[in-house]
Simulated scan of single mutants.
Amino acid sequence: MSAMIEALNIISWNIRGAVNAKGRRRSIELVQLHHPTIFVVMETHCLFSSAESFWTKLDYKLCNKVEARGHSGGIWILIAQHSQQVTSEVVVSPQALIDDCNLLDLGATGLRFTWYRNQLGFPLAKRLDRALCDTKWQTLFPNAFVENLCQVYSDHCPLLVRCGSLIETKKNRPFRFQAAWATHKGFEKIIKDAWKRSTPTLVNGLNTVWKEAIEFNRNVFGTIFSRKREIQARLKGAQFELEK
């Protein structure tokens, strides 16, 4: 049981439109980087049926929802397919909930604010998003903390609730072709040469291409997710400077 608790990550994000291509791309990055067991999507601005296939491909299923009305509102609580069932409830009156249940603000590391907007040429920033818990939950997850992630696409930062330690264990993941590889002028030749060197069976050919693609990503193209983390770290540094 403790191993499952240590592996639990939760992401909550006011996405400001869940069918937009940029929002979906950012959602994929968040899943790939942080492997959340629970992903809460707010301000979806659409019905879940219009995005269900997208989340199914990411290996998530719906746990609870409040559907959007037209192009406003909408909350989806999604859980990883491999996880046990989660009981959830969406409450409309947050202040009453905080008072009645004596909820505690978990605070946050990272960016000081969670909402940024430029209004009439003046930058605005506030801490609108936060994670709350009761004493029972805090006892169950004593090492839990919240990180305000980099603001990309939406004017709200995603919140990452880590219920275990900061260090995440690396897992052997299945090979996935990265579309960005094809933008490199030398990638096509590498694949053709790898296919020619393999013995004439489909399985051997694919295995050789797989090994060459991994080697190409490591030594020539550079690890994509490492580059993304570096860029996001620079963006977060810039946002830190703007908060001063």
Rank of each mutant, 00 (worst) to 15 (best):
I75S: 05
W76S: 07
W76T: 09
I77M: 03
I77R: 00
I77H: 03
L78W: 01
L78N: 00
I79G: 09
I79F: 04
I79Q: 12
A80R: 15
A80D: 07
A80S: 14
Q81H: 13
Q81C: 14
H82R: 15
H82Q: 13
H82E: 13
S83K: 02
S83N: 05
S83I: 04
S83A: 15
S83H: 08
Q84S: 06
Q84I: 06
Q84E: 10
Q85N: 11
Q85S: 13
Q85M: 09
V86H: 14
V86Y: 09
T87N: 10
T87R: 06
T87W: 02
T87M: 00
S88F: 07
S88C: 15
E89K: 11
V90C: 14
V90W: 08
V90M: 01
V90T: 01
V91C: 10
V91G: 00
V91F: 04
V91E: 01
V91H: 05
V92W: 06
S93D: 13
S93F: 05
S93N: 13
P94W: 04
P94R: 02
P94Y: 01
Q95M: 06
A96W: 04
A96L: 11
L97V: 13
L97E: 10
L97C: 13
I98Q: 07
D99A: 14
D100G: 10
D100W: 05
D100Y: 06
C101V: 07
C101A: 12
C101Y: 08
C101P: 02
N102F: 08
L104F: 09
L104H: 12
L104M: 13
D105K: 03
L106S: 05
L106E: 00
L106A: 03
G107A: 05
G107M: 11
A108I: 03
T109W: 04
G110Y: 02
G110E: 01
G110A: 05
G110P: 06
G110V: 09
G110M: 04
L111V: 10
L111P: 06
L111D: 03
L111I: 06
F113V: 12
T114P: 02
W115H: 13
Y116A: 07
Y116T: 10
Y116W: 11
Y116K: 13
R117S: 15
R117Y: 02
R117I: 14
R117W: 05
N118G: 10
Q119I: 14
Q119L: 14
Q119V: 14
L120T: 09
G121P: 01
G121Y: 02
F122L: 12
F122T: 14
P123K: 08
P123T: 01
L124F: 11
L124M: 14
L124G: 04
K126P: 00
K126L: 09
K126C: 04
R127K: 14
R127Q: 11
R127I: 08
L128E: 03
D129K: 02
D129F: 03
A131D: 04
L132N: 03
L132E: 02
L132F: 12
C133Y: 00
C133M: 11
D134E: 06
D134A: 04
D134H: 01
D134K: 07
D134F: 05
K136R: 11
K136C: 08
K136I: 12
Q138E: 14
Q138G: 09
T139H: 09
T139M: 08
T139F: 08
L140H: 08
F141C: 05
F141E: 00
F141Y: 15
P142R: 06
P142T: 08
N143T: 11
A144D: 02
F145V: 09
F145E: 13
V146S: 03
V146E: 09
V146Q: 04
